[in-house]
Amino acid sequence: MESVVNRAATAAPMASREVRWTTVGVAGLVLLVAAQVYGVLTSPPDRDMGHLQKIMYVHVPAAWNAMLAFLLVALASLRYLWKGRLADDLLAASAAEVGMLLTGLTLALGMIWGKPTWGIWWTWEPRLTSTAVLFFMFVAYLILRTFVDDAERRAQWSAVVGLLGALNVPIVYMSVRWWRTLHQMQSSPMTLDSSYTWPLRANAVALMLLMAYAVAHRYRSALMTQTADELMDRLALKGTPGGSRA
């Protein structure tokens, strides 16, 4: 509890940090637009997919960054359980929000690509299916947070749920792969023609910057909300020390 209030005292450095994060967000956005322009202008249509292949430029980086967000949730949760700082819990929640968005984007783009390419919106292919499971785990994590009112309890519980979810990710992936052994070659710069790799890399970096910006933004606003709540509590209790526990 204390750490959040102490952070309110350091509001001045926060303002300059905000400028820095805005720069990151703007840079990400500019890079994203530039990468699309570059990709559309330079990379030739794919032999099989034609220009549908361009969906990959956002689809694949979104999937990568969703995994990164999930990793961030797991690390922040672990750190919360270790140190007990409420700020780590808010960081995990912010990463989970962005991760859910990116996972949803990955699924939606995959479907838009799958319909004209495979002729179907959905197939029970391992990577698709485990991404969908990941999406549901993010959703359950965020719903749990809305159902618990006490801040400490919410933090403790969601840290545990986040960690167990992270433990389950490799098991889900393995089991779904065994279930459906038809493999889809994974996209990486290695499996692609060189004309596609640079737009893909640029998009990956752009989305990573945007993700970092979004997580930082949500994190900051969560910290502010928390601080405001505590100050309101203190005010209501006429500034009694420890009033924030009410």
């Binding site: 499971v133 549901f136 785990m137 959703v139 359950a140 719903i143 749990l144 159902f147 618990v148 009112d149 519980w157 545990v160 749920v161 167990l164 979810g165 389950n168 098991i171 889900v172 393995m174 089991s175 779904v176």
Partner: peptide
């Protein structure tokens, strides 16, 4: 242990549990 002590416990438990049950 969590869902029974939160709001909407009937919905929360399957939401948490079933995605984990897929393996």
């Amino acid at each position: 242990a969590m869902s029974s002590r939160s709001r909407s416990r009937e919905v929360l438990l399957p939401l948490l549990l079933f995605p984990m049950m897929i393996p």
